[in-house]
């Protein structure tokens, strides 16, 4: 069975949800403690949402220095799939795994709502299960969700198709951001399509009983396809 790590910083809140989503997708969830520089042999890592270290300096600014993050950055460079959700996205930006930054919502209010997104890139390891252009409904809940980057970076992201999720005004409607994000960007990927960060919460949309839909499960099933296949290949090569 594939093993997906879920990182826990002091102040991480959505770790139970991320772990539940991993289990629902059919993998084992492995808790990774911030103070241990050890990924415990996991196949992929989720950096969940919350307020790591209280977000008192700047969201994600302290968490990037945690011992576990050094391991995550090194593993990401080797190609390990990494997903940052909300505060986790902020941490990945602070750690330099993804470009840009997340700033205060344009409304200056924390916003918790069900949000329509369009899947713009179905080639990342976290999005292969979606149809191109698919519209999904997942919760968004953040006070600092406004994605910003310089024009050059934005051009690069758009030019290389690295915007993975974009905010929609409504199902079937045009794009539009609830927090002022540049280009209505909700989520992006690194150049290799293995590190993905997004502000909305797919881990809260895995069961219509407790979320708006089960659309979010697609991200976790996608990565299992990737690491499952890679794992099978590795096993075949090593002759196990």
């Amino acid at each position: 069975m594939s093993r997906i790590g879920v990182i826990i910083f002091p102040g991480t809140l959505d770790d139970v949800d991320a772990a539940r989503a991993v289990r629902h997708a059919g993998a084992e969830a492995v808790a990774l403690w911030h103070a241990d520089a050890d990924l415990r042999g996991v196949d992929a890592v989720v950096v969940p949402g919350g307020f790591s270290y209280g977000d008192y300096l700047r969201a994600g600014a302290i968490a990037r220095f945690a011992p576990v993050m050094g391991e995550v950055v090194a593993a990401a460079k080797r190609g390990m799939p990494v997903l940052g959700i909300c505060n986790g996205f902020q941490v990945l930006c602070e750690a330099g795994l993804l470009p840009g930054a997340l700033t205060r919502n344009a409304s200056l209010h924390f916003v918790c709502r069900d949000q329509w997104l369009r899947v713009e890139n179905t080639a990342t390891v976290w999005s292969t299960r979606f149809e191109p252009g698919a519209e999904i409904l997942v919760p968004l809940k953040s006070g600092e969700g406004c994605y910003v980057a310089d024009q050059h970076t934005l051009d690069e992201l758009e030019g290389e198709g690295r915007v993975v999720f974009r905010y929609l005004l409504d199902s079937g409607g045009g794009t539009g951001s609830p927090n002022g994000s540049r280009n209505d960007i909700a989520g992006i990927t690194d150049a290799r399509g293995r590190v993905v960060g997004l502000m909305p919460h797919p881990e809260h949309a895995i069961d219509p009983l407790t979320g708006p839909t089960d659309d979010g499960l697609g991200l976790f099933l996608s990565v299992l396809d990737a690491v499952g296949a890679a794992g099978a290949l590795a096993e075949a090569v090593s002759g196990r």
């Binding site: 809140l13 139970v16 949800d17 924390f110 918790c112 709502r113 809940k141 809260h204 407790t210």
Partner: peptide, 10 residues
Amino acid sequence: TQQYDHYVRG
């Protein structure tokens, strides 16, 4: 109510 997180912990 949209300023309150009602999803956390699932």
